[in-house]
Structures are given as C-alpha cells and as structure tokens.
C-alpha cells in the first residue's frame, strides 16, 4: 500500500526533525538570562543551598551530559518534571492542551467561515463596494494586536454591556465542569448532558474565539483572494468561460483550484496558534498551553519550556501532514 508507505516515510522524517528541535530548544533555554535554581530557591537561600538545588536539578553536569539524559528520558516518554508545579510535564501539558485546542480550533473555523467567503467575493468582484470594505478590513485586522483587541472586546461586551461572562477562563467559577472525557468542554458537557455547562462554556468561548477568529480572518482572506485571483487569470478558467460555463460553475472551478493553497495557509496558521494564542489566553485567563509556557518562561522552568516546544512541534508536524494529505485529495497530480 503506497499511502501507508508514504505515511511511514513521513513519520520517520519526524524523528530527526524532533531531535533537532529538542537540541536547539535545549540550548536556547539555557541561554536565557537567569538561573532557575536561584529562582526556585526563593529570596533567602544562599550559595550552598543553591548549589545543592542545582545538583538535584541536574544542572551541575556538563550541558551535553544533561542533553543526553534528557533525550533518553524523552525517548522513554518522560518529559521530566516541572520545577515549579512539581508535576510531570506531560500531565501538565495534557491537562492544558484541550483548553487551547478547543479555543484555537473554534477560532480557526470561525476565521474560515468569514475569511474564505470574503476572499472569494473580493476575488470575483474586485470592484464592488463590499469587496473593497472586506479588503480594507483585511488590512486593518492584520495590523492590530490580538491582546489589545481582546481587551477591547472585554471592555465592550463584558464591562459595558455585560452580554458575555467574565474573562476568567472556560467556565464560571460556580459551575461544576462536566466529567472530563475529551477535554473539550463543549463536547464533554454535551456527552454529560450538562446543559448549564454547555451554554456557559460556549458563552465563555465567544469572546476569545471572536478575538482570535477576527484577527486571523485577515491572512485567510488575503490568501484566498490572492490564490483565487491567480486561478481566475489562468488559461483554463478563461477557456471555461469561452465554453460558456455559468459564473457559478466558473467560480466553483476557481475555488476548487485555489483550495490547495488555502488549505496550506490554514494549516500554517492553525499550527502556529497553539503557542501563538498566548496573549489572548492571558487576557481571558484561559489556562491553556500559552499561559503555561509564559509562566514556564518567567520561572525558567527548562523542562516545561522544552516539553511545550516539543508538543507544539509535534502538533505542527501532524497538522502539516494532514495538510499534505488533504492536498493530495484536492490535487490528483500529487503522487505519493
């Protein structure tokens, strides 16, 4: 089976890539200013305490030795323990992963629902007022900071109008979360038949999804616009018109042929959102991976940072793999 062979090959290429990423991150975090042992020891620990801590943290060994120990642990599925939460990194990440994934997945779906149609309209009717407005919006949304936009939404829709719940995470503090099955609150509350939690989690998702979603409409719209434009100018679209195909059909041809590049940009954006939603997570107290890694950076929690980068890399690699597979569905010319 060719596909299976292709998949196998692709997955094999992940290994050197991941080792490379691990090495680079391993070195980079150690170049951060500040010493985690000092940070961990608090304000009243001195020389020998810190030295003892360094030893117990394994920081006294030469860096290459530390690296191989770490690599060995990672290969056994052990990402180490956080020096600050005192929990296995993997557990920390897994607890937070669904929160971020739920947020960014809904956001990107939102962006697609808005951005792709806008891009199509702008490409087909470049002179209409509507497409001018949407192009203008694309440039506007591309230039604003996500956390600022989030704060504005909070100010308008929570502080002033009080239409949406407080930015304190995924649920009201008084609502008991449903039993965790997938980690996605919306799905879990549905499974549990917990109507209250479902409505509440959706209400909490609204503003952060709106923030990330509206911001990411811009690149998606621009990419749709430019690839549609390119396709619209191609010979086969012209020939389709010469053959008297309806506008609708021509548009479907154009969209069909732009999809591969649109899917690619969607994959890139989705992959980068995992860590890229940090500021929005902070604004909404989301408690996802972004917030976790921010704290890890502040605390110089080496294993936590490394673990996060590893997970984010794997996530991106899988997204890219999906994108390539989808590309193959859309474009019969691509062979395994």
């Amino acid at each position: 089976m060719r596909i299976a062979k292709y998949l196998g090959k692709r997955l094999l290429t992940f290994i050197p890539l991941l080792i490379g990423v691990i090495l680079v991150v391993f070195v980079l975090v150690r170049l951060l200013p500040g010493d985690p042992a000092t940070r961990l020891a608090g304000n009243f620990a001195y020389g020998d305490t810190i030295a003892a801590l360094r030893e117990s943290m394994g920081l006294d060994k030469p860096i290459w030795q530390q690296f191989f120990i770490y690599l060995g642990n990672v290969l056994q599925g052990n990402l180490g323990e956080s020096w600050f939460t005192n929990k296995p990194i993997l557990d920390d990440l897994i607890v937070r992963f669904p929160a971020t994934l739920e947020l960014i997945t809904l956001s990107i779906l939102f962006s697609i629902a808005i951005g792709v149609p806008l891009g199509i309209v702008a490409a087909i009717k470049p002179k209409s007022i509507f497409s001018r407005i949407s192009t203008g919006y694309g440039f506007f949304a591309g230039s604003i900071a996500d956390f600022w936009f989030g704060l504005m939404l909070v100010f308008v829709f929570f502080t002033t109008l009080n239409w949406f719940p407080a930015p304190i995470g995924r649920l009201d503090l008084t609502i008991t979360p449903p039993l965790q099955i997938t980690g996605f609150l919306v799905i879990d509350s549905l499974l549990a038949g917990n109507w209250n939690a479902l409505m509440n989690s959706i209400a909490h998702l609204a503003l952060p999804v709106l923030t990330l979603g509206l911001i990411n409409v811009a690149p998606i719209m621009k990419m749709t616009l430019s690839s549609m434009k390119e396709v619209m100018e191609s010979d086969f679209i012209n020939h389709a018109k010469v053959l008297g195909l309806s506008d609708k059909k021509v548009m479907r041809y154009a969209l069909r042929n732009s999809l591969p590049s649109i899917v690619t940009i969607l994959g890139v954006i989705y992959g980068s959102l995992l860590g890229g939603a940090v500021l929005v997570e902070t604004v909404f107290g989301w408690g996802g991976l972004g917030q976790y890694v921010t704290q890890a950076l502040v605390n110089k929690d080496y294993s936590a940072i490394q673990g996060f980068v590893l997970v984010a890399t794997i996530f991106s690699l899988f997204i890219y793999l999906f994108v390539d597979l989808i590309y193959m569905i859309f474009d019969p010319r691509i062979k395994f």
Partner: peptide, 14 residues
C-alpha cells in the same frame, strides 16, 4: 493577569 480585568470582574460581582 490583567489588572483591568480584575477591576472588571470585581465591578460585575463575578
């Protein structure tokens, strides 16, 4: 984390 959000939460009674 954001102090303005803490204010907003307090004002709303959350």
């Amino acid at each position: 984390p954001s102090s303005s959000n803490r204010v907003a939460l307090l004002l709303s009674g959350t």
